[in-house]
Design a protein around this nucleic acid. Structure first.
Length: 609
DNA sequence: CCCCCCCC
């Protein structure tokens, strides 16, 4: 059994100087345990592995790009793992293994041998997790020798091997340390090189505070293991701003790694890079580093993205607003420009550009733009806004962009787009539709006791008018305040306004029975809603009923049997000491067959047949 | 060492 495992691999990985890597040793180990680490908000799950060579075991972190090995059960407890790519990293004087490439194989039913912890200092190191600085100082006496030796990692042999394994260096300048995965960077070592793509580059920002004036810029670097934010101040701006181009790949070395202030950035890394005087950045021709990944949200689905979250949107710029000027809370003026985006979901949304981006924005025709990391707001239901960390890529070379282009050119200019609206925006809303997420059948309205709670509740239902009460459908109202007025000798008196009017304005209180396949219910349509059901004002209908009862009946008859989407409110009240629920129609819209068809398709898709 | 992300 034990011969399946690589003898002494664990202690070699943990202790060898210089550290070994996969060009020297590709060990097969047994997995003793797999633990999911509580993921921070907006970061991926991480797995911690305990791996054994039969004699010793050690802890390792699995690179997130290998999560699928765990999630598909390829890696299991007692199973075997062969490490094909890995890095070690000294943290608090302990060497931490990060697995970057591995293959899995089934293992025996039980643990092989009686391995012991390769790290005999584990017990005393389990304290003080909260404060990395204090922890570092506390660990210093023991850590010092190992940190020292970790710096020596830049030994030519290790470097050459590591570089060869990762595709080689473009040549030129003297490298400053072994090639590290971004995931392996930490403040506890300073000799490293990363090979990374610039996923985003900010504008140059000028600032002035108590300490004086300055300028800075940020970039986000990414490689196959993760991303990290880097900042350059002042001279670093002069040295590197032009060198670093969005989308290109570089070797970066001799920069500082600090603890990131997570609250200021949505880049998924506990650390960040600070460019320094001696920082070296060289372009790299190797394109094997991953491209920026997008996770596009169809505009239609923005309703379900929480306010203040960021997301990626791929859209056509349908309209470009004028450049405007606003004054921010801090009193400073800002340029802004609103543009209107549309996509194949046939929804549109407003996006706001700020500052230089707003001033410089040009759009010829209807460009397709990929927006990365835009902020979702709730103005007008849903809106988008650029952050300084957001990026905008014209006509990106991704499949979705090509199909969007094709679709828009073929039919996108003729589509009437749904727009978000703020009225009652509680999840989703459309100008031409009624909140689709609250569609209920009449059966559901009753089963779920909609309206039985203390506060008013809202729902929409698609139903057919089965009966309209035509005896009393309106009341004489005050033209000023809509309150009921009473006829007197010389006109109509409003108590509230203390005024007499020559004639009242009739307003609807139309009671109707509506039904669907699950039941029927009585609902009340007030003035505007009833007007849209009957196509006449209450005044017109009162007059018609007196003058031509046949025409009046015809109006009622025509409406009966028609189907609408009723946007309703439900509220309890008591009537003759009896509790009942009153359903009021806030709005009645004819069925939007396009939306209806789409909703039905969605329902069919959700069915598990 | 920034860290604001604005308005209607």
């Amino acid at each position: 059994m034990a011969d399946q495992l690589t003898t002494d691999a664990v202690s070699t990985i943990f202790h060898a100087e210089p550290p070994v890597d996969a060009t020297v040793l590709q060990p097969t180990l047994q997995i003793l345990n797999i633990k999911k680490i509580q993921a921070a908000a907006n970061s991926m799950d991480r797995y911690r592995l305990i791996m054994s060579d039969g004699k010793h075991y050690l802890q390792a972190m699995l690179g997130t790009q290998l999560n699928n090995l765990v999630e598909t059960n390829a890696l299991t407890k007692n199973g075997l793992i062969t490490l094909t790519q890995y890095a070690t990293n000294v943290v608090q004087g302990r060497r931490l293994l990060i697995v970057l490439g591995a293959t899995a194989a089934p293992g025996p039913a039980d643990r092989i041998g009686q391995p012991t912890n390769v790290d005999d200092r584990t017990a005393e190191n389990t304290e003080a997790k909260a404060n990395p600085v204090a922890q570092q100082q506390q660990a210093a006496p023991q850590a010092a020798p190992q940190i020292q030796s970790a710096r020596k990692v830049a030994a030519p042999a290790a470097r050459g091997a590591s570089n060869a394994a990762r595709g080689g260096r473009a040549g030129g300048a003297q490298p400053s340390g072994p090639l590290y995965p971004i995931e392996g960077l930490s403040p506890y070592q300073n000799k490293w090189t990363i090979k990374a793509r610039v996923a985003h580059k900010s504008d140059i920002k000028h600032y002035s505070n108590q300490r004086g004036e300055g300028k800075l810029f940020n970039v986000t670097f990414m490689d196959e293991t993760g991303e990290i934010r880097a900042t350059g101040f002042n001279e670093a701006v002069d040295n590197f701003y032009e060198v670093l181009q969005e989308g290109k790949v570089y070797f970066i070395s001799r920069a500082r790694v600090n603890i990131a202030k997570k609250q200021f950035s949505n880049v998924n890394n506990d650390y960040e890079i600070m460019f320094e005087q001696h920082t070296e950045i060289e372009p790299c021709e190797d394109e094997s580093v991953p491209q920026v990944k997008y996770n596009f949200v169809p505009i239609e689905n923005l309703a379900s993205v929480e306010k203040d979250q960021t997301c990626d949107v791929l859209a056509v710029v349908k309209e470009v607003g004028e450049l405007g000027q606003i004054t921010a809370k801090n009193g400073r003026p800002f340029s802004k420009r609103d543009i209107t985006l549309v996509d194949q979901s046939q929804w549109s949304v407003r996006l706001t550009l700020w500052g230089k981006q707003a001033e410089a924005f040009k759009s010829e025709g209807y460009p397709v733009i990929a927006f990365k990391g835009v902020k979702v707001g709730d103005f007008g239901g849903r809106s988008l806004s650029m952050f300084s960390s957001s990026s905008m890529t014209y006509n990106p070379d991704v499949g979705e962009a090509h199909s969007l282009r094709g679709w828009f050119d073929a039919e996108g200019t003729r589509v009437s787009y749904n727009t978000f609206n703020s009225a009652g925006m509680q999840g989703a809303a459309g100008a031409n539709s009624i909140r689709p997420d609250e569609m209920k059948t009449i059966g559901q309205i009753k089963d779920e006791n909609i309206g039985m709670s203390d506060k008013q509740e809202y729902f929409s239902t698609k139903a057919t008018i089965s009966f309209i009460k035509s005896e009393s459908f309106s009341y004489p109202a005050c033209p000023t305040c809509n309150k009921k007025v009473v006829e007197e000798n010389d006109g109509w008196r409003c108590e509230k306004c203390d005024a007499v009017y020559p004639k009242p304005l009739h307003r609807y209180i139309l009671n109707l029975s509506v039904m669907d396949h699950t039941g029927h219910v009585w609902i009340t349509a007030f003035n505007e809603a009833a007007e849209s059901l009957l196509g006449k004002t209450a005044d017109e209908l009162v007059e018609m009923k007196e003058a031509d009862e046949g025409a009046f009946n015809n109006i009622i008859h025509t409406a009966t049997g028609k189907t609408f989407t009723f946007s309703c409110s439900a509220k309890q009240d008591s009537y003759n000491d009896q509790m009942r629920i009153r359903y009021s129609v806030r709005r009645a819209s004819p069925i939007d067959y396009k939306l209806e068809a789409r909703a039905l398709i969605k329902l069919i898709d959700e069915m598990q047949i």
